[in-house]
Simulated assay, not measured.
Amino acid sequence: MDIEQLRNYALSKPDAVEDLPFGPDTLVFKINGKVFLLAGLDNSPLQFNVKCDPDKAIELRENYPDAVLPGYHMNKKHWNTIVVNGQLSNKMLKEFIDDSYTLVKGKEKRVSKLK
């Protein structure tokens, strides 16, 4: 997976939007105003941050210590940095993005309409 494939996949998610709040070198993808993926444009190999269930995050870091790291500049309990170095399949990379999207989307605030 390269940065364009990552970008296209993230934007294929319903209601996903792209933003550059941290400057031109960091792509940020949001759902309902909440971040679900960050990707640096100047990293080689490609790296991106995704939200993850805390227990699953620990398991992934133990199983893939060179490809799944505690989230860089993020809450390390809830975020992983994924290094796209060939150790993880594109299917797994997409699953990480899917999981993050689902976790963040589930946190959207429900607004009740008063009559």
Rank of each mutant, 00 (worst) to 15 (best):
16 A>W: 05
17 V>N: 13
17 V>L: 09
17 V>H: 07
18 E>N: 08
19 D>C: 03
19 D>R: 09
19 D>A: 13
19 D>G: 02
19 D>W: 00
19 D>I: 01
19 D>V: 03
20 L>T: 05
20 L>S: 01
21 P>K: 03
21 P>N: 04
21 P>A: 06
21 P>V: 07
22 F>T: 11
22 F>Y: 09
22 F>V: 11
23 G>R: 02
23 G>W: 00
23 G>I: 11
24 P>R: 12
24 P>H: 11
24 P>I: 13
24 P>W: 00
24 P>C: 07
25 D>F: 09
25 D>E: 15
26 T>A: 07
26 T>P: 00
28 V>K: 04
28 V>F: 02
29 F>S: 05
29 F>I: 12
29 F>E: 06
30 K>S: 08
31 I>T: 06
31 I>P: 00
31 I>F: 04
31 I>G: 01
32 N>Y: 09
32 N>M: 06
33 G>K: 09
33 G>N: 10
34 K>V: 11
34 K>S: 09
34 K>H: 07
34 K>W: 08
34 K>M: 13
35 V>E: 00
36 F>V: 08
36 F>A: 03
36 F>M: 06
37 L>C: 15
39 A>Q: 01
40 G>F: 07
40 G>W: 06
41 L>T: 10
41 L>W: 04
41 L>N: 07
42 D>L: 14
42 D>W: 05
42 D>K: 15
43 N>G: 04
43 N>Q: 14
43 N>C: 12
44 S>A: 13
44 S>N: 14
44 S>L: 12
45 P>A: 11
45 P>S: 11
45 P>M: 12
45 P>L: 12
45 P>D: 12
46 L>S: 07
46 L>V: 10
47 Q>A: 08
47 Q>G: 04
47 Q>T: 13
49 N>V: 07
50 V>T: 12
50 V>E: 05
50 V>M: 08
50 V>F: 06
